[in-house]
Write a protein that binds this DNA or RNA. Sequence first.
DNA 1: CATGGGATTGACT
DNA 2: GTCAATCCCATGC
Length: 181
Amino acid sequence: MLEVAPALLGCVVVHGDCAGVIVETEAYHFTEPACHAYVGVTPRTEVLWGPPGVAYIYRSYGIHALLNAVCEPDGVGAAVLIRALEPLWGVELMRARRRGAAGLTNGPGKLTQALGIELTEHRSSLLTGPIQICAGDPLPYVTGPRIGITKAVELPWRFCAVGSRDVSRPWPPGLLGAARG
DNA sequence: CATGGGATTGACT
DNA sequence: GTCAATCCCATGC
């Protein structure tokens, strides 16, 4: 999972006529309390404990749909949150879905809205389903603490592509690890 | 069955 | 910088 999260940077998410390059991810593992799978196997978290390559989509704050990729083998609860994309195809459609708001895909709730991804695609395959993740060239990246959580804040499990202007939030230069990849 | 807490965003001071 | 909107589901009675 800590290998999959940075490896997803540079890969392409395709949904319908829209696509974008992943430039920001976060890793979640059942052994730490920020992960939904921390509570064990429930109807909600069952997918996280299943086989990899499946979409885990849930509603956040009653408003936004957030897209994750299940990434550990069957029996291990873990996923990678897709936090930001660089728009690739279907920009006009994305703009329409975002109703002109600034920032098309630079946030986990924004990118699902721009691509038209909804809760109905929960549990669908990311290889053969309506949402597909295609391999891309690896990108250099930096790590840092995850955004917007209240538990396990200290884990540096956020991965950002170096130099992308589509990351969900900027960070103070010099505070994070050096570029890798 | 009632309640509380979010892996967020956009609008506003 | 602050704050409300709003749905799902885990938890506790």
